[in-house]
Amino acid sequence: MTDNAREEILARIGEALGRRGGGEYVSSSPVTPARGTGSTANAAATAAESGYHHEGTHTGEGLIDLLIDRLVDYKANVHRADGDPSETIAELIGGHSSVVVPRGLDETWLRGFSGEVRVDAPGEELSVDDLDGQGGVVTASAVAIAQTGTIVLDGSDECGRRAITLVPDHHVCIVRTGDIVDIVPEAIARLDAHAPLTFISGPSATSDIELSRVEGVHGPRTLDVIILNG
């Protein structure tokens, strides 16, 4: 790496660290321009900022279709429901004798399920052994990112604490159409940076050195996503 290239990179990093949200640039000290380039670090940062997208271009059904495409590509099972997802949920968890839900989940969503519903709540957390004995977990979500096929849980009453979505082998997650965004910056803008965020892109999976895919190693083996209209 030449001295010019090194100084250019360091100048860009320094400039980026000095910027604030919304594209405003705040610098406590001047940055030395890279030698021989004829451009300052500030110009480089401005160029980078101008190419950074804060909002996506997909809307409506196109946005939903993109999310579904990405989720399926990650081997998640995707379902659609209008207004009331209870019938779909009952079909998905009907083979389990017991499931766990966070304390804030809409109780009517489980009315079609005939098995036991265990509620995990602050001060009444289920043990790891209890969670391991559940057939599945049903939660809502905070936001879903279409471009990356990612669902985000934020530890709220509807999403629950992280452990309940990692230990059971089957996760049924409800995503409201109003919570779907196109790109990552739109999702970050909606989320509380201080919340315990969990980003989910498909069921848990890993591959060994021979690229043999194994699912369920770090979390649920099966992920069912219900896209809820209304």
Rank of each mutant, 00 (worst) to 15 (best):
G135D: 10
R162S: 14
A146E: 10
V117K: 12
A121I: 04
A146I: 08
G133H: 10
A140Q: 11
H171F: 06
L131D: 04
D154K: 09
V167M: 02
A146Y: 08
T148L: 03
G123M: 09
V128G: 01
P185D: 11
D182I: 01
H170V: 13
V138S: 05
Q147H: 11
G149A: 08
I151M: 04
R161C: 03
L166M: 15
L153Q: 13
D129S: 13
V119C: 03
D179S: 15
S114F: 00
E125C: 00
D157C: 06
I183W: 07
A140K: 12
G115E: 07
A121R: 15
V184T: 13
V175K: 06
T150M: 05
V117T: 15
G133K: 15
T177A: 11
H170E: 10
V184K: 02
S156G: 15
L153D: 04
H170L: 06
D169P: 02
V184W: 05
T165Y: 00
L131N: 09
G149N: 12
R161D: 03
G115W: 11
T150P: 01
A142K: 14
V128F: 02
V152R: 10
S127D: 05
G133L: 03
S127L: 11
P122R: 15
S114Y: 02
R162Y: 03
T139R: 09
V172K: 14
T177P: 00
V184Y: 11
D120P: 01
T139V: 12
G135A: 05
L126R: 14
V117S: 06
A121V: 04
D120C: 09
A144C: 07
G135K: 15
V143A: 12
I183G: 02
D120I: 07
Q147N: 09
